[in-house]
Write a protein that binds this DNA or RNA. Structure first.
Lengths: 210, 210
DNA sequence: TGTTTGATGTGAATTATCTCACATGTTTGT
DNA sequence: ACAAACATGTGAGATAATTCACATCAAACA
């Protein structure tokens, strides 16, 4: 292990390794080689070893990696050894589907607040027990509920304004589902999810025929 | 322009450029420089010019790019100058939210089929006019409705099986929302959407404090 | 205890991607 | 018609990421 700048791609792959390893745990696999994990994840074995080498030595030479240990180590690396409170801003089709989506909870992400501007939605109690607040209460509730990451599922036009409010409320992680590029100060980390961009990529590949 | 292998990253950026340009069109911007577009998209100006240079010369020196023309050109490059029929497999929370999500239609992607195994859902008519079919009819309906890309929103356990069926039905583009790595032959192009991986990335950045 | 087998960890080579810097071509203004 | 201003297109250089190849260590077994 050495001290170096970690490639962004490495971080994303660590998540993928972790998920694959967790599946394997459920199938009672105790030890795994980089070769087998690589095949499962669709990457090069050396890639996995390099990725892990940024953070330490987690394997046993001649043997492989203990699956359970490696999951714990990766969680440590990513900061997932504790819960992360989320807020959903925008309780429309997508927002409410995500609020009900079990996959977040499974990985330690907990919705503790939800916001909308629609009077018909404000005050409604959601299946997970939280109540929809008006966006006017954003800052107050975000601090009260100790939210650390905001998910934006508003229409495109509202997204930037919401992002500004989130930053003012002290949030510095945003997952943006709105189809616009939002601008934030450096202290805030934004990740975008745009399904149609992925579709464009598929369309391209089908068009050029590879 | 020269003949070269196109970086995957370039293709993804082209989508982003296109969306930004489309926004600008709505604000009646007619001509734009790589510098301004770059700032809006959060990339380097030279990057944009290089990306476009893979495919031709679309700008006017000393002037910039005609917004409308460039949108058309990028659509041509990506193969978006025609509609793409989609099928949704899995009409749960996420699936039905996406089926109602206007953003697909806006970019020329049209759902022409939807599938589920739940008898309560099969036969139901969706807001966009299509009827939910049973997964048993997958191959037949996919051919009938001329579907080219499949979206998987089933539970993780079912995803691989569905992917296999899609490939058998002649599909070679899949957008996978299930949180598993699915394996397909080379003829098929898979893109994965996993929100929790993006969250992991945010969590990492907040943890290490950058 | 020595040897063989197996899989990690990592420096070096390779490949891919991004950025710079400037020549090139357009337009505007005098 | 000429010069100044401007922004593209691109070769060359810099940077980053991936893969190779092998030294290194652990376990199994004779």
């Amino acid at each position: 292990m050495k001290f170096a700048k970690i490639p962004m791609a490495t971080i994303n792959r660590l998540s993928i390794y972790m998920r694959t390893l967790q599946e394997m745990l459920e199938e009672d696999v105790e030890v795994i080689s980089s070769e087998r994990l690589a095949k499962q994840c669709g990457v090069n074995p050396a890639q996995i070893r390099k990725d892990l080498a940024y953070f330490g030595e987690f394997g046993v030479r001649g043997v492989g990696y203990r699956v359970n240990d490696l999951v714990v180590q990766i969680k440590d690396i990513l900061g997932l050894n504790r819960p992360w409170n989320l807020a959903m801003i925008g309780v429309g089709n997508l927002g409410s589907a995500l609020l009900r989506h079990g996959n977040f909870t499974k990985h330690g992400y907990i919705f503790t607040a939800a916001f909308d501007v629609d009077p018909k939605k404000v005050g409604k109690r959601l299946p997970n027990g939280i109540t929809v607040n008006h966006v006017d209460e954003l800052e107050e509730k975000i601090k009260e509920k100790e939210v650390l990451i905001g998910l934006i599922t508003t229409p495109a036009g509202e997204a930037q304004g919401i992002a500004n409010q989130l930053v003012l409320a002290g949030i510095n992680g945003i997952l943006n589902f709105a189809p616009v590029q939002i601008q934030v100060p450096d202290c805030c980390h934004v990740e975008n999810v745009d399904f149609t961009i992925k579709l464009d990529s598929i369309a391209y590949h089908l068009s050029v025929g590879s």
